[in-house]
Design a protein around this nucleic acid. Structure first.
Lengths: 252, 252
DNA sequence: CTTGACCTTCACGCAACGTAAAGGTTTAAG
DNA sequence: CTTAAACCTTTACGTTGCGTGAAGGTCAAG
C-alpha cells in the first residue's frame, strides 16, 4: 500500500503538515518522491511512524526520537517493549490522578481533609513504596503488573476512614475464620462468611475482582511463608483452612 | 501555609517560571505581594492551581482554562467530577494503546499480522478531540454532558468491524432518504425507514436513545449549517425532509 | 475544459514555557 | 558584621511543534 501525506495522516490521525514537518527535520522521510514531487510513503515508513507516535505519546521530543531511532543500536522490538513498560507506568500515574480527583471531590463534600501535598499527588512521578519493595516482585509475577499497580495506588490514596473500615473488615474476617476452624468445616457457614469478608477486604485493594485471582492469591498465601505466618497467627493451619474456604467460595 | 513561587512549584511539580507566567497571563494571581515584591500564595490559590493542572493534564489550553474558571457559572465540584470522567476516558485510550503495543510486539514475533490501520489504534485521540471542538458545545447544551461523553467513549472503543457497520447504516439511510424524497412524503414507508435507520445509526453513539433527543437532534441539523451541508449533500432540502420524517417517526 | 480536491514550497504566527541577564532580598555560616 | 548562597524580581529573546495562509502545480471526474 502506498500513501500520500493526507492519506497517511488520516490513517495515523495526524495532519499532513506534521508529516511534511517530520520530513523537513529528517525524522520521517518518504519512501520516494513521485514524478510530480509528491511524497509517497510505504510500509517501512508506516511502521516507523508508529514508533515515532509511541515515543511522542510518551513525551519524548522529536529531536530525541530522531536520535534514538537513527542510532545503529536501535532495536525496534525492544523499543516496543520499552513503550509497553512506559505506558503501564503512565497508567499507574493516571490511576493516581484519578484517585486524587476522587479524594478532592470527597474533600469538597467535607468528608475528608487533604494536605496541600496530597492535592498534587499524581501530577508528578513518585517513588514506589514499601509494600512494593517487599512483596511486589512475587505478586507481580503471579498476577501480572496491572492488578498490583492499581493496588498500590489505592493504598496510597486511602483516607483514614477507609483505612479503619478495612482494618475492621480484616478483623471480622479473622474472627469468623477462628470460629470456622472450631467447626472444622471449610464449606460451613462461618468459613464461607470469612471467605466473603476476605473478598470484601480484597476489593479495597483491587480494581477488579475475579474469582481466579482470588483463588490464586489464596494459594500464594499457603506457599509463601510470610503470608502463612501472617494468617497462621490466628491458629496453626489457618492459612490452609482459609485457602480451602476461599476455593469452595469461588466455586459456588 | 504560605508559599513563594519556588515552594509552590516544588509542591505542585512545576517550575517557578510557570507560576510567573500564569500570573502574567492572569490565570493564577498570587494572594498578595509582600514588601519585597515576592509573590505569596495561600490555600485558595493552591486549590485553584490544582484545578488548573487537572485541566492542563486533559489538554485544555491555558486561555480556555482561564475562561472556564473565571466564568461566574464555574462550579469547582462539578469540574472535579468532569475531570474524573475525562481521566477515565483517558484511561480507556491508554488501554487501547497498550493493547496496540502488545499486538505490535506479537507482530514482530510473526505471531500475528496487523493492518496499517490497526497500527495506529489508540492514537486516534485527535479525531475525537476534533469532534468535540466542532459539535461539542451545541450537543452538550442540548443533551447534557453525560450523553456526549458516553458517545466519545464509544467512538474510541469501537472496533473496525463496528465502524464499518455504522458506515453502512448511514449509507443505507442516505439511500432511503433519497428515494423517499422522490416520493415527497415524509410519512411514507421509505422516509420512515430512513428515520429508523437514522435511529439505529444514532444508537451506536448514544448510550440511551430517547425520542425527544432524537427529535431535538433533527431540529439542530436544520438550524446548524454545518449539519445542513452534510445532509443536503444527498439533495437540496434533504435535511428538512429528514427532520420531518424523524418528527413523524418519533410521534408514531 | 473546467472544477475541486489534492499536492508542493515558502513563510509567518503561536502557545507555553526555558533560559539568561541584571539586579534586589533573605538567611545561614564564618 | 560580613559574606556567600540561595532565593526573589523584571525584561527579553529563544525554542518546539506544529497551524495557517499564500501562491502555484497536478489529477480525476463530469
Amino acid at each position: 500500500m502506498e500513501y500520500t501525506v493526507q492519506k497517511l495522516g488520516q490513517l495515523a490521525g495526524i495532519s499532513a503538515r506534521t508529516l511534511r514537518y517530520y520530513d523537513e527535520i529528517g525524522l520521517l522521510k518518504p519512501t520516494r518522491i513521485n514524478s510530480s514531487g509528491y511524497r509517497i510513503y510505504c510500509v517501512t515508513e508506516v511502521n516507523r511512524l508508529q514508533q515515532i507516535l509511541f515515543y511522542r505519546e510518551l513525551g519524548v521530543n522529536l529531536e530525541s526520537i530522531k536520535e534514538i531511532m537513527t542510532s545503529p543500536a536501535f532495536d525496534g522490538t525492544q523499543a516496543l517493549r520499552d513503550h509497553r513498560d512506559k505506558l503501564l507506568e503512565k497508567r499507574v500515574q493516571l490511576d493516581a490522578l484519578i484517585n486524587n480527583v476522587d479524594k478532592s471531590i470527597k474533600q469538597t463534600e467535607r468528608k475528608i481533609s487533604m494536605t496541600d501535598k496530597e492535592k498534587f499527588e499524581g501530577f508528578k512521578q513518585k517513588l514506589v513504596d514499601d509494600n512494593e519493595k517487599k512483596y511486589g516482585k512475587e505478586i507481580r509475577k503471579k498476577y501480572g503488573e496491572d492488578t498490583v499497580n492499581a493496588s498500590n495506588v489505592k493504598i496510597k490514596g486511602m483516607t483514614e476512614e477507609e483505612y479503619a473500615k478495612i482494618q475492621k473488615l480484616e478483623e471480622q474476617m479473622f474472627m469468623n475464620l477462628k470460629a470456622a476452624m472450631d467447626t472444622g468445616n471449610p464449606a460451613g457457614e462461618q468459613a464461607q462468611k470469612a471467605a466473603d469478608l476476605h473478598k470484601q477486604w480484597l476489593c479495597f485493594y483491587w480494581d477488579q475482582y475475579s474469582k481466579e485471582a482470588h483463588e490464586g492469591l489464596a494459594e500464594m498465601y499457603v506457599s509463601d511463608e510470610r503470608f502463612t505466618a501472617y494468617y497462621d497467627k490466628v491458629q496453626s493451619g489457618a492459612t490452609e483452612f482459609l485457602r480451602d474456604a476461599i476455593v469452595i467460595y469461588t466455586k459456588s
